[in-house]
């Protein structure tokens, strides 16, 4: 795998979540292709200088989310048929978090559902003009 993964251990985001997010993003952007092999847990732990069990936890969750598959003795690979769906799911995950944070903020300053809808419509018109 290209050296696309970096983690910021000093961030408040758990390291295993950073690894999951970055692998998903790499798959979504096509940096990681279907069938491509991931480094071993030990290798990635040494490359990132993080705990091997943390990397193993990230791999387990990526496997559960059908982003990668691991075959004993061969290693972990980006799943062929899972790429398209997992890329879309990864994008949705990111979008949901951003929207939730924004709406919480908006609600706390006293805007109503109607106000928000107007703002969202205006934003949609700006970013998705072709689908108007």
């Amino acid at each position: 795998m290209p050296a696309v993964l970096t983690v910021d251990p000093r961030s408040g985001v758990p390291i295993y979540l950073q690894i999951i997010e970055q692998v998903k993003r790499s798959v979504a952007l096509g940096v990681l292709q279907a069938g491509e092999q991931l480094p071993t847990v030990k290798q990635l732990a040494l490359d990132l200088t993080v705990n091997p069990n943390t990397v193993a936890r990230a791999y387990r969750e990526l496997e559960r989310d059908s982003v990668i598959e691991t075959s004993p003795g061969r290693g972990s690979f980006v799943r062929g048929n899972g790429v398209a769906t997992s890329a879309r799911a990864a994008a949705s995950d990111v979008a949901r978090d951003v929207l939730n944070a924004a709406l919480r903020e908006v609600k706390s300053v006293g805007l109503t559902r109607g106000d928000v809808r107007e703002l969202v419509d205006a934003a949609l018109d700006r970013w998705f003009p072709e689908e108007q």
Partner: peptide
């Protein structure tokens, strides 16, 4: 430490460098 941990060794360590603990410790 990470190399030893990968072969299954148990490690207990103290450090005032919290960044190191953040990386190495589970």
């Amino acid at each position: 430490m990470i190399n030893e941990a990968a072969r299954g060794c148990t490690i207990i360590f103290s450090s005032h460098q919290i960044g190191q603990v953040e990386r190495a410790a589970e």
